[in-house]
Design a protein around this nucleic acid. Structure first.
Length: 326
DNA sequence: TAGGCCATCTGGTCCT
DNA sequence: AGGACCAGATGGCCTA
């Protein structure tokens, strides 16, 4: 590091000298412009300042090391400003790219709302939970207990986000009733089949080093609410034989289909146009078929028999059907 | 008004 | 040398 510092070009040091003269508060939105303007203004008093600096150096400040600071000529100043502006533009683009990626992530996690966007940090947390929950499904080869699934998703999320996610999932307590799934194929886990033992929810305050409230306290009352006209929750495909999803209760488009495949080597994930993530398609499964109407959920690579095939109409997402495939 | 979230600028560091 | 990446600082906006 020091080595690199010593390798700095003369100009770099000059520029730094100039920059140091800028107020530290030059940052902030639009602040940079201010800083540059300041720089410009300073330029006019340049010689005077240099003399002053030398005097000060002799008395209070320790002497500046390295080559003596050269005067900031107009040309140098221009070059500095150009470099700074270019760097700012690049940084802006970079951050925009990052935000775009984050937006893409928002669309593939189980809760997506155009009007009520998850914050960046919450998006990342939810994505992490989502990935983990899906891995558990694949690992165990069992459909998760709905409650556990939601708890896993909301782990470590703030209370508002927890509510949002729960709302997006439009969970229906009736889903838990065993009589809801009398027609499940025998190889499919019954509703209420729990995630593997360690899947149980733990207080995020303990696991994530976060204070309990408001970070994802998991009172069921926070999670479940009945949405009128939405008799089936989006997780229904996990637990019921047939799902009819009709009409959105949340801002469209909701989350895209969930991609689950026990066989990662054959996993095909093609991007699905956001337009295809239609309103009612809140939480279902899809295969990389993209706009295709067929998806399958394997119950873990170790158990290719436990497979759920989903048939749906991706254009209108009016119906999702689960049938067994042996 | 405090706090959360965000965009932007900035300088340092590392990499190509 | 120039670009990418990163973290700190700052100020604006919004909400409880």
């Amino acid at each position: 590091m020091e080595e690199q510092a010593s390798l700095e070009s003369e100009e770099e040091q000059e520029l730094r000298g100039s920059a140091e003269e800028m107020e530290p508060s030059a940052g902030g939105r639009g602040g940079g412009e201010e800083g540059l303007h300041r720089l410009e203004d300073d330029d006019e008093e340049e010689e005077e300042e240099d003399e002053e600096e030398e005097e000060e150096d002799g008395e209070s400040k320790p002497k500046r090391r390295g080559p003596k600071k050269k005067k900031m000529t107009k040309a140098r100043l221009q070059r500095f400003k150009m470099r700074r502006m270019k760097a700012n533009a690049r940084e802006r683009n970079r951050m925009h790219g990052l935000n775009d990626a984050l937006e893409s992530l928002r669309k593939v996690v189980p809760c997506y709302s155009k009007t009520q966007k998850l914050s960046k940090i919450e998006t990342l947390r939810l994505a992490k939970n989502y990935i983990w929950a899906l891995s558990e499904i694949l690992r165990s080869g069992k459909a998760p207990d709905l409650m556990s699934f939601v708890q896993a998703l909301c782990k470590g999320l703030s209370q508002p986000t927890t509510n949002l996610v729960a709302g997006c999932l439009q969970l229906n307590p009736r889903t838990f009733l065993p009589e809801q799934t009398p027609e499940l194929p025998p190889h499919l886990p019954q509703a209420g089949a729990a995630f593997p033992g360690h899947f149980s929810y733990q207080s995020p305050g303990l696991t994530a080093g976060l204070p309990s409230p408001p970070y994802g306290s998991m009172e069921p009352s926070h999670i479940f609410h009945q949405v009128k006209g939405q008799p089936y929750g989006p997780l229904e495909p996990f637990f019921d034989g047939v799902l009819v999803s009709d009409g959105p209760a949340f801002d469209p488009p909701l989350s895209p289909p969930l991609s689950v495949n026990g066989n990662f080597s054959s996993f095909k994930h093609e991007p699905v146009a956001p337009a295809d993530f239609d309103k009612s398609f809140s939480f279902s499964m899809h295969y990389g078929g993209g706009a295709g109407g067929h998806a399958a959920l394997y119950g873990g690579g170790s158990n290719p028999r436990s497979r759920i095939d989903l048939h749906f109409n991706t254009r209108h997402h009016k119906s999702v059907q689960i049938c067994s495939a042996r």
